[in-house]
Design a protein around this nucleic acid. Structure first.
Lengths: 215, 215
DNA sequence: GTCTATATGACGATAGAC
DNA sequence: GTCTATCGTCATATAGAC
């Protein structure tokens, strides 16, 4: 019993340290860019020596991996409430735009994560399969959302859902990429690319929608 | 006279060395990723010592800057013939797709350059104004192309050309980003995102085109 | 002008004492 | 679990040979 409790405490404390490492890492990445993460800087801010980090992570890339996974998981969690709104709303097209804007806004306001999630800024780092899981789940839910939109007649009955999902992904990631690369200090509301989302969303829904309006 | 010739030879030789450095740098970046460029590796392949590189470039970032400029200039030059075809063709919509495909294909086949041109993979490196010039010129020509398409009635008379240019840029860079990040080893023809270009192009032209077809 | 030789300080990573 | 010591590599700077 006492032994089991001891293990529990130790593990709890270990997890807390791991969480702190990741939080500080995200801080450093936000200031220096995703590729500018330095173990010495993490250690300095935590008041420990760099080698101590190796007690919790096997390598620098393992830290990147954990940050990558955490980013997708956080974004995924933040989108869940919006997805559930689909049951209430009668304007699925407007909700679609809201979802797109929420997604891009998160990326613009969490650029350290977004660089790692949407680009390959770190030579030699490739996310592990486990870290990729939340990203795959995001893709799954997006496909599911489009299938539901099709069921409701917002998307054409003969629309290729897999294709629509890929197209939407490319659209959104294009806006994010251009913002991060060309005007990273601009706010979501004022960005040249982020402001295009209503147009792009309407473009997308016109193409995959049930009928094309006559102007 | 002899002195002037001597200077000419020296400068020519200097320029040749500079060109060799940039070619080797692009090689290394293609293998290790844009952020994985190492001066020692450039020097090793050239058969010189790393400090010798400082005779030709002030810093590593100066090499990145030159590669960045060269990438945009090369892409720009490779697109010029396609742009001129606008005068001959009677199917401007098809040419529009060809141009998009050419652009993306170049990025997919020159990933070392593309990473530097479309992302920010190197902490602390921001392209100089001079290096940015060919990229600005590319944007200018794109705007010009769309204005011409509008003159010909391929784009709506009341379409916002600046907005259309930004939207097209976001679309294209979305395809490139997703390909580079998720399936960089896939060919242009087989890529999940690159294959979407006809759909995306049609989506774009439907939105900005003169009338929306009824399905 | 161009190169080599050498030095500096930061980095990621490892070994081993405590 | 944390430290010190250390290694190899990196970008960069300087001194000096040719």
């Amino acid at each position: 019993m006492a032994a089991a409790e001891g293990v529990g405490r130790r593990q709890r404390r270990r997890q807390e340290t791991i969480d702190e490492v990741l939080a500080v890492a995200a801080e450093v990445m936000a200031e220096a860019g995703a590729g500018g993460l330095a173990l010495g800087e993490i250690a300095r801010r935590m008041g420990i020596q760099p080698p101590s980090l190796y007690v919790y992570f096997d390598s620098k890339n393992a830290i990147y991996d954990a940050v990558f996974a955490r980013g997708w998981q956080t974004l995924l969690d933040s989108m869940a409430p919006l997805g559930r709104r689909l049951d209430d709303t009668d304007d699925a097209r407007a909700l679609m735009l809201l979802i797109s804007q929420h997604f891009v806004k998160w990326a613009v306001e969490n650029q350290a994560y977004a660089q790692l999630m949407f680009w390959r800024p770190v030579p030699g780092f490739e996310p592990s399969e486990a870290a990729f899981a939340p990203a795959v789940e995001m893709s799954r839910r997006t496909t599911q959302l489009f299938a539901e939109l099709q069921r409701r007649g917002v998307l054409r009955a003969d629309a290729d859902i897999a294709e629509a999902t890929t197209a939407w992904t490319a659209l959104i990631s294009g806006v994010i990429s251009q913002h991060l690369a060309n005007e990273p200090t601009e706010t979501f509301d004022d960005g040249r690319f982020t402001r295009l989302l209503p147009v792009l969303s309407s473009m997308f829904l016109t193409h995959y929608g049930p009928e094309r309006e006559i102007r």
